[in-house]
Write a protein that binds this DNA or RNA. Structure first.
Length: 308
DNA sequence: TAACCGTGGTT
DNA sequence: TAACCAAGGTT
């Protein structure tokens, strides 16, 4: 256990009154400031929530919006997506990044059709069993789509808790047991309020308590923020892991897949060879895409997005 | 646990 | 400008 993942005893044993002092202003702020996002509208069902959660894994809202709209128009239900090919899902994913998410969303749609009569399950365990759904997304769908009481711990909420409650600038690199404990202890008892709290605390992190330049003047809990009260001490501990990209296999994979996404017909090897000069890395990247099921090799060195 | 998996905007 | 960051999941 590192110093940065420690939390104070008073935080874990937060009283109902103390947590309410946090919930009430944050939820009130959310009521007044929540963004009007399509997956939050009353007519948006569980499928809409689920699609948005897949797309928002590591991708900003502004880039998700247009792809989300096209996706929902084309595949308004899990069965609609399941009836199409995984390659079409990858193509429609466009440049959102991490295209394995598109493949997993398609796989989840197939599983929902086959195992859940076409309805996105509301049970947390059943959600967790779907491809591409982990701890966060299962809790998010159960909470946002079905109003259930779950600790929804995404990067925004983790940062808000780290600052407001624990008094540190940034949460640990990986989610810790202490963070999960804290999130559960802060969960309102009442189901509907817990779901509201989950969305509100996440939105606060996204709009106000941002990573690089938090707008404490607009924060509804700045008066009780442990980090601000401590004088906003700088992050201590191991540096937050950077993501190098230039020259990596990921970049090569991206270039290869872009060619296939934009092609209407299967692509000959030569067209793929043109995207990267170094043959060993290029071959490794292509092999990886095939192994991941993102690319389907045909005979004669011709490739395409997966047909099925 | 830590590395890997895309892409583009911001600082 | 290079580094950082973005509603994570899988192995």
């Amino acid at each position: 256990m590192t110093a940065t993942s420690e939390i104070t005893p008073s935080a874990t044993n937060a009283t109902a009154a103390a947590t309410a002092a946090l919930h009430t202003p944050v939820i009130a702020w959310f009521d007044a400031n929540a963004r009007d996002l399509p997956w939050r509208r009353p007519e948006a069902g569980a499928w809409a929530v689920m699609v948005s959660e897949f797309m928002l894994q590591q991708t900003p809202v502004s880039r998700v919006l247009p792809v989300y709209e096209q996706w929902m128009e084309r595949w308004p239900s899990p069965a609609d997506l399941a009836a199409d090919s995984p390659g079409e899902a990858v193509r429609a994913w466009g440049r959102l990044g991490y295209p394995r998410r598109a493949l997993r969303l398609h796989g989840a749609a197939v599983a929902i059709r086959d195992r859940h009569n076409g309805d996105v399950p509301s049970d947390h365990g059943q959600l967790l069993a779907l491809p591409g759904i982990g701890e966060y997304t299962a809790a998010a769908v159960a909470s946002f789509a079905y109003g259930q009481r779950h600790a929804v711990l995404d990067t925004n909420v983790r940062r808000v808790f780290a600052r407001a409650v624990t008094g540190i600038q940034y949460p640990p690199n990986a989610t810790t047991a202490a963070e999960r404990r804290l999130a559960r202890s802060l969960l309102p008892e009442q189901e509907a309020r817990a779901a509201r709290w989950a969305a509100a605390s996440m939105e606060l992190g996204a709009l106000v308590c941002t990573a690089k330049s938090p707008d404490c003047g607009a924060c509804p809990v700045s008066q009780q923020c442990a980090w601000r009260l401590a004088g906003k001490p700088a992050h201590v501990g191991p540096p937050r892991r950077g993501q190098t990209y230039a020259g990596t296999d990921r970049q090569v994979r991206g270039k290869l897949l872009a060619v296939l996404r934009e092609a209407d017909e299967p692509v000959p090897q030569a067209a793929l060879d043109a995207v990267w000069h170094e043959p060993v890395q290029r071959a490794r990247a292509l092999d990886g895409l095939v192994a991941d099921g993102l690319v389907e090799p045909l005979e004669n060195g011709v490739y395409r997005l997966p047909a099925g």
